[in-house]
Simulated scan of single mutants.
Amino acid sequence: MNKPLILVTNDDSIVAPGIRTLIDIAKQIGTVIVVAPDSPQSGMGHAITVNNTLQINKISEDGSEVTEYTCSGTPADCVKIAKNEILKQKPDLCLSGINHGSNSSINVIYSGTMSAAVEAGIEGIPSIGFSLADFSWKADFEPIKDYAKKIIEEVLNKGLPQNVVLNVNFPKLKKEEIKGIKICRQANAKYEEKFDKRISPFGKEYYWLSGEFVNNDKGEDTDEWALKNGYISIVPVQFDLTAHHAIQQLNTWNL
Results as ranks from 00 to 15, higher is better:
P91S: 01
L93D: 04
P75A: 09
E68V: 10
K88M: 05
S72K: 11
V66N: 05
Q55G: 06
E85V: 14
D77H: 12
T31V: 08
N51F: 15
K80R: 05
C71K: 11
I86P: 06
K80F: 07
Q89K: 04
T49N: 06
L54Q: 08
K80V: 09
L93I: 00
A82H: 02
E61A: 11
N84S: 14
M44P: 04
I86L: 02
A82C: 05
D92G: 00
S72A: 07
T53C: 15
Y69E: 07
G97I: 03
A36K: 05
T74Q: 06
E68L: 12
E85G: 06
S64G: 07
S60A: 06
K58I: 14
T74I: 15
T49G: 10
V34P: 01
T74N: 12
I59E: 00
S42R: 07
D38C: 03
T67I: 07
M44A: 07
E85N: 13
T31Q: 11
T53H: 09
D62M: 10
V32L: 02
I86V: 13
D92Y: 00
A47V: 09
P75R: 10
T49S: 14
K80G: 08
T49P: 13
A47S: 10
P75M: 11
K83P: 03
N84P: 07
V32K: 00
T31C: 08
I98P: 14
H46R: 13
V34W: 00
I59G: 01
P37R: 04
I48Y: 15
L87I: 00
K90Y: 01
T67F: 06
G43R: 06
V32A: 02
T70A: 09
D62E: 11
P75C: 06
T70N: 12
D77T: 14
V34E: 00
G30A: 04
Q55N: 14
T74L: 14
E85A: 08
T31W: 04
S60E: 04
P40S: 04
S42A: 11
P75Q: 13
N52Y: 13
V32F: 04
V35P: 03
C94R: 01
N52K: 13
P40H: 04
Y69W: 10
P40T: 06
I98G: 12
D92I: 01
C78M: 13
G43A: 04
T70D: 09
T49L: 08
T70R: 12
C94W: 01
V66A: 01
D38M: 03
I56Y: 11
I81V: 14
T67S: 07
N57M: 07
K88G: 02
K90I: 00
A36L: 01
D38S: 13
C94V: 01
C78G: 11
T31A: 10
S39W: 05
L87R: 01
A82N: 02
S39H: 07
D38H: 11
S64T: 09
